[in-house]
Simulated assay, not measured.
Amino acid sequence: MPKRIDHGARREEVLAAAVRVFARKGFAASRIDDVAAEAGIAKGSVYLSFDSRDALLKAAFESYAALAADVLADLGSGPALDRLATLVRRIVAMLAAHPDHARVLVDLWASGQPLDMAAVYRDYRAVIENLLRQAREEGALRAGIGPEHAVVVVAAVEGCLLQWLVDPELPIADLAGPVIDVCVEGIRA
């Protein structure tokens, strides 16, 4: 009897292998052969799940975008600045838990690949802008804080991410607190 293959599970295995390879070698230097070897399958088996290296890259990006969307989806209830602190903690935790995705994201950002990374940033900023608006309505913000501060919050987290990728000894998981101190407590009324 032939071995039954769960094509959905195989696709996820191939995608996970591609993310590891792209993170280690960079997208430009990675080949389908590398992904197949990482997954422990034949090169042709990769093509059963993805028709090209670009399709793998797109799926890796979509996987990261889905992780990001999950972080943004439910921040709970309570004061807006508390939810902003929760968002910062969750983003940092997600990045720390998925370092290969983070490396691929930076590689994509640096290479100018035609993926809509701006949409991911717009989504982050929109959630943060909304939290800032709510915090203003709650009387929790100091004077002069506006929607442009959402860019600074994202930049603080992304700056920590970039430094961690360059210097893996940096304890990324410990940086949520300092980012909250500066970007949340620093704007509190």
Results as ranks from 00 to 15, higher is better:
49 S>T: 13
59 A>Q: 00
21 V>P: 02
46 V>K: 03
54 D>F: 09
19 V>I: 14
58 K>A: 13
20 R>H: 04
9 A>K: 14
50 F>K: 10
23 A>R: 04
28 A>W: 15
28 A>Y: 13
57 L>W: 03
53 R>C: 01
22 F>H: 09
57 L>D: 05
47 Y>M: 10
21 V>D: 07
36 A>E: 10
52 S>N: 12
27 F>C: 11
57 L>N: 04
24 R>T: 05
42 A>V: 14
61 F>H: 06
54 D>M: 08
46 V>T: 08
27 F>T: 02
53 R>V: 01
61 F>D: 03
18 A>V: 05
48 L>D: 01
8 G>A: 15
53 R>H: 05
14 V>N: 00
61 F>Q: 05
54 D>S: 09
19 V>R: 05
34 D>K: 06
51 D>H: 12
24 R>K: 08
60 A>V: 04
29 A>V: 01
18 A>G: 10
20 R>F: 09
26 G>E: 10
14 V>D: 01
14 V>H: 04
38 E>C: 12
28 A>T: 14
13 E>I: 00
55 A>Q: 11
32 I>N: 10
32 I>G: 11
15 L>G: 06
48 L>G: 00
51 D>A: 15
33 D>H: 14
26 G>Q: 10
10 R>S: 14
59 A>I: 00
46 V>S: 07
43 K>S: 03
46 V>M: 06
23 A>I: 02
30 S>E: 14
26 G>L: 11
17 A>C: 06
39 A>S: 11
29 A>R: 15
24 R>L: 04
27 F>D: 06
24 R>S: 09
21 V>S: 03
23 A>D: 02
27 F>W: 15
29 A>I: 01
56 L>S: 04
18 A>D: 07
53 R>W: 01
42 A>M: 11
51 D>P: 10
56 L>F: 02
30 S>I: 14
9 A>S: 10
17 A>R: 06
58 K>F: 07
41 I>A: 03
49 S>W: 06
25 K>C: 00
60 A>L: 04
37 A>L: 09
54 D>P: 03
52 S>I: 14
42 A>C: 13
11 R>T: 01
23 A>N: 00
29 A>Y: 04
21 V>W: 07
59 A>T: 00
43 K>Q: 08
45 S>W: 07
14 V>C: 04
37 A>Y: 07
26 G>M: 10
28 A>C: 07
34 D>S: 07
41 I>E: 05
21 V>R: 02
11 R>V: 00
47 Y>I: 09
34 D>L: 01
26 G>P: 07
35 V>F: 08
35 V>D: 11
35 V>W: 01
28 A>H: 13
46 V>D: 09
49 S>L: 06
34 D>Y: 02
11 R>S: 05
38 E>G: 12
11 R>N: 02
40 G>N: 11
16 A>D: 09
9 A>V: 07
39 A>I: 13
21 V>N: 01
45 S>T: 15
53 R>I: 01
57 L>S: 13
29 A>T: 03
58 K>Y: 08
36 A>G: 13
18 A>I: 05
19 V>Y: 06
44 G>C: 14
35 V>I: 15
18 A>K: 01
29 A>K: 10
21 V>K: 03
